[in-house]
Computed example of a mutant assay.
Amino acid sequence: MPFSSAAPKPKVAHSAPRAHLFGLSAAMVTPFCTDGTIDTARATAHAAFLMQEGLNGVTLFGTTGEGSSLGTSDRACLLDAVLDAGVPAARITAAIVAPDIETASAQIAAAQAKGVDRMLLAPPFYFKGVSQAGLGAWVTQLISTTKRDMQIILYHIPQVTGVAFDAPLIRQLKDRFSDTIFGVKDSAGDWEHTASLLPMDDLAILIGDERLLARAAPLGGAGAISGMGNLLPARVDNLIRTGMADPDMDALVDRVVSAPVTPLVKALVGGLHDDPGWATTRPPLEQADSALVASLLATVRSLKG
C-alpha cells in the first residue's frame, strides 16, 4: 500500500511549539536471514507497519539498524525493500556511517539516486581525540563532494562514536551551510548539551534519548529519531507532541539501555509480532538475553495497550 509523501500534519501544541518540524521517525531495525543477508520480506512488512502506525518517517542504517555492519549492497537492498513497502523517499532518512569521505560520499550518492535527500550524518569515528576544527573540516569537505542538494542531520552520539559535535561547531556549520544543515540528533543523553542546542531555532533539534523528549518539547525540541519508535510509536509521539512526562516509558527505557540496546529492541519487535526471526543480529552483535526479552516484552505489551 503506498503512503502519502507528505508527512502527517500534527497538531502544534503550545507545550511543543516546534514538533511539526520533524515529528517522529523510527530508527528502523534491520532484519537478517539466518545466512546473514538482509531479510527483505521482514523489512518490507515492518516498514509498512511503522507507516500505518502514523509515523512521520523511518530512518535506515542508524545505530538501532546496525548501520555500521551494513555494506554497500546491504544498504541498497534494505532501501529498496523499504521503498517497495510504499514508503516515499521523502519520508526516509538515510544514516551515513563511514570514517572516510569517499565512502560517506558514496553512501549519500546512493541514497540520493533513490530520491532520498535527508541524511543522518555520523562523525568519522576511527580517530579519537580529534579537534572540533578537524571535525568541521571533514564535514565541510564531505559537503563539497555532493552533487545535489540535501538536508543533513548531524548525529551526536559520542558514547558510540567517540567523537562529539559540540554546540559551537554545530552553530558554525549551520551558519556556513545554511539550508544543508537541517538539524541535530542529540543521542548523548546529556541534558546540559541538549539544553545548549534547543535555543538554536533555525535547526531541528531531535532528541535521541526518549527520557528527555518531554523535557525538551516546550523548549523547542522538534522530534526524535527513536529506537523505541519500533515498539511504542504512539507513546513516543505523545512525548514529542505534548511535552507530558511518561514515567512508565522512562522506566522501560532505563531497562532497555542497561543492556546492549540494538539486539534487545530487535528481539522485542519479534516478540510483538510473534516472530523469533527478528532476534537475529549480524556479528559482532550477539542476540539478546531471552529471559530479559521475555520480561520486557510483557512491559511493552502493557504499555502498548
Rank of each mutant, 00 (worst) to 15 (best):
99 P>F: 06
215 R>V: 03
5 S>M: 09
266 K>F: 10
169 L>F: 01
286 E>M: 12
8 P>V: 11
69 S>W: 07
175 D>H: 11
127 F>L: 12
236 V>I: 15
205 I>A: 08
64 T>F: 00
45 A>D: 07
268 L>V: 05
303 L>W: 13
101 I>N: 09
226 S>A: 14
56 N>H: 15
255 R>T: 10
253 V>Q: 13
107 Q>T: 02
266 K>N: 06
54 G>F: 02
152 I>K: 04
252 L>D: 13
98 A>L: 06
88 P>T: 14
181 I>W: 08
246 D>S: 10
9 K>Q: 11
147 K>D: 14
26 A>K: 00
168 P>N: 06
6 A>V: 13
218 P>I: 05
198 L>C: 14
304 K>W: 11
124 P>M: 13
156 H>P: 01
195 A>G: 02
222 A>R: 09
131 S>Q: 08
122 A>L: 12
304 K>H: 15
126 Y>L: 14
44 T>I: 01
214 A>K: 03
274 D>K: 11
184 V>L: 11
156 H>G: 01
185 K>E: 15
86 G>C: 08
60 L>W: 00
100 D>C: 05
120 L>K: 05
229 G>E: 08
45 A>K: 06
96 I>W: 05
56 N>C: 06
72 T>I: 14
160 V>M: 02
88 P>Y: 14
51 M>G: 01
44 T>G: 10
138 W>I: 04
62 G>T: 00
42 R>T: 12
224 A>D: 01
180 T>S: 10
31 P>N: 09
35 D>K: 03
31 P>C: 12
65 G>I: 08
63 T>Q: 00
3 F>T: 01
303 L>Y: 07
12 V>E: 02
25 S>P: 00
275 D>I: 08
30 T>Q: 11
241 R>P: 01
293 V>Y: 09
300 V>D: 06
179 D>Y: 10
22 F>W: 15
144 S>G: 15
158 P>I: 01
217 A>N: 11
236 V>K: 02
31 P>D: 07
112 Q>F: 13
206 L>A: 04
129 G>W: 10
129 G>M: 11
77 C>N: 09
173 L>G: 05
85 A>I: 06
12 V>S: 03
253 V>R: 10
259 A>D: 02
294 A>W: 00
90 A>G: 10
298 A>W: 00
193 H>W: 15
248 D>Q: 13
35 D>M: 02
94 A>C: 15
289 D>W: 14
241 R>W: 07
45 A>P: 00
202 D>P: 00
